[in-house]
Amino acid sequence: MELVCPAGTPAALRAAVDAGADSVYCGFRNETNARNFPGLNFSDAEMAEGVAYAHAHGARVLVAINTFAKAGAMKSWADALAVADQAGADAVILADLAVLDHAARHHPRLKLHLSVQAAAATPEAIKFYADTFGVRRVVMPRVLSVEEIAKLNAAIDVETEAFVFGGLCPMTEGRCALSSYATGKSPNLTGVCSPPEHVAYSNDRDSTATRLNGFTIDRFGRDEAAGYPTLCKGRFVAGGKTSYLFEDPVSLNAASLIAALSKAGVTALKIEGRQRGKGYVAEVVKTFRAAVEAVEAGRDEVEVGRLLAGLVEGGRQTSGAYKKTWR
């Protein structure tokens, strides 16, 4: 199975390739990219150099241009497609209908992947994207069980890519308005969930408070694991009880499901984490490379959960919706 790995910087791209990535996904330093954080991402020249490095080492580069274009301001997205094409990228990961249409018309060399941001989870939706724009791969929304993915794969004739490790979004990818409710910016339009200029941490003797644009969204004790400063992972009072109302701070780990995902027809396994350091990228990619090879060779499973325990959000791991144990 193909291992698709994250890179937020050229150094992380090289780390991913060196650690055994089949493909690396990355994006430009602007609003076309759903990981538009300060200091992160690639200039036009860095993208061309990154593609050259990956190709020289037998890996592919998938460029994420996966935000939704603003009405009347399509130029940034069209430029990003042109630069990705010129850089020699192997595929682009898109979500927006207009961007897909532009890519299909003007950049026929580029393979089109449908971003998880498009939240296409039915055969009808996927067929529409495949028939209309020639989409060849769909990134599965993180709402489906393995059985649901198997049924979906039986009904479509494009490749599917499934997340196996890293951060989780609650169940409305591409449609989440929580960040824009609090800050005016969202991953969907400006490429940032909880933009860092709106995030503040304050430490006192016993705890750390997380504030998002003035709203206190969590407070954790000195010995309590922390998570990302997003509203979906904040703690709130509801029904007289304080709890993680939408989602716990926890990382996805579907390493134990690699064989099942393969059997379900999944083509590629995706690791989340373009905002993470190259230490994370190298370690996670190396571990999952070994895990995939072990499954393919019929050897004992690699203990991914133990090996990567020090890297996970909130100090906890979950198989997420793949098992839907809450049902």
Partner: peptide, 16 residues
């Protein structure tokens, strides 16, 4: 991020 999650480092001020 991992060092922040497991509270090995403390950060404060301008997150951007």
């Amino acid at each position: 991020d991992a060092l922040f999650f497991n509270r090995t480092i403390d950060v404060a001020g301008r997150t951007d």
